[in-house]
Simulated scan of single mutants.
Amino acid sequence: MEIYDSYQSASSLYQQIAIKKSELSNIDKKEFQKSTFEKNDTVVLGEKNYDENDYQRVLNKFKNKDNEIKTHEQIHASGAQTTTAISYNYQVGPDGKLYATGGSVRFDTSIPKDPQSAKMKLEQLKDASSSVGALSGADASIAQAANLNKMLLESLKEGFNYENR
């Protein structure tokens, strides 16, 4: 009977060990699935998953556009009086830095009472808004308005009267 009891206790021990191994195997399987899911689901910074040439091409486009926009707006601002600092629109580039993608300058468009000063200021506004190579719609509109106002001043000086009769 003792042999039978020992055999039964050894058998139950092996059975318990097998159950524990099975439980551990299931835990390992769940952990493996979880880690695989996390690896595929998350973004790991620093890993290269892009073509270096494409990255450099896009980065160069951001840098060139930034330089072009800033130069364009600084040329405008240097030509006439402004009411505020240059305003830029920014976008984050592929390297995590901010690059200008647009901008604007607010000119002082008040007209002095003295006709000669007004004519000079309108000429400055026209020159400042049209001094860059590639005119935006706003640039052209300001240059056109300044030119029309200058022509109106000159015609008033010559004695034309545009009042309604």
Rank of each mutant, 00 (worst) to 15 (best):
Y4E: 12
S110K: 05
Y55F: 10
I75D: 10
L152N: 10
K119N: 08
G103K: 04
L122D: 09
L153Q: 05
K39C: 03
S12P: 03
I27T: 14
H72K: 15
K48F: 02
I19E: 10
I142H: 05
K113I: 08
A85F: 08
Y50W: 08
N147A: 15
N60S: 13
A146R: 01
T36C: 09
K97S: 15
P112N: 02
S35R: 10
G137L: 06
A18Q: 11
N53H: 05
E68K: 14
D28C: 08
P94E: 06
F62M: 14
A134V: 14
K21L: 12
A100R: 13
S141Q: 11
N164Q: 10
L98M: 15
K70I: 03
G96T: 04
Q15S: 15
A80E: 06
Y162K: 07
D108I: 03
G159E: 02
R165V: 11
S104E: 07
E154F: 05
K119G: 05
K150N: 12
S110E: 06
G93A: 04
N89F: 02
L45S: 08
N149K: 09
S104H: 08
S141M: 10
N161S: 03
N149W: 01
I111V: 13
I19G: 04
V43W: 03
G96I: 02
I17Y: 06
V92S: 10
P112K: 01
R57H: 11
G137S: 12
N53F: 03
Y4F: 05
A143V: 09
Y14I: 13
H72A: 00
T101Y: 01
K119H: 05
F37Y: 14
S6C: 07
S130P: 07
Q144P: 07
D54I: 12
I75C: 01
D28R: 14
E68V: 08
Q81M: 10
K20G: 03
S129P: 07
V43F: 05
N64W: 09
E31N: 14
R57Y: 12
N64S: 15
K97Q: 13
L59E: 06
N64V: 15
V58P: 01
I3Q: 08
A134I: 14
T83V: 13
F37W: 09
A134Y: 14
T82C: 00
Q116T: 11
I111S: 06
K150I: 11
S130I: 02
N149H: 05
T36E: 10
T71C: 05
Y90A: 09
P94R: 06
I69A: 02
Q124H: 05
S129F: 01
T42G: 00
A140G: 04
E38A: 04
L156D: 05
K48R: 13
S35T: 13
S22V: 02
V58H: 01
S155N: 13
N60H: 12
V58S: 02
K65I: 15
N67D: 14
E52V: 08
Y7L: 04
A143T: 03
K126L: 08
K97P: 06
D28F: 12
L148Y: 15
E38Q: 10
D95W: 01
K126D: 07
E47W: 07
G133W: 07
D66F: 01
A138D: 12
F160D: 12
A77I: 04
R57N: 08
E68Y: 13
E158S: 09
L24A: 07
T71A: 11
L135F: 02
K121N: 10
I27H: 12
D114K: 04
G103E: 00
T109W: 04
Q124A: 10
A80K: 02
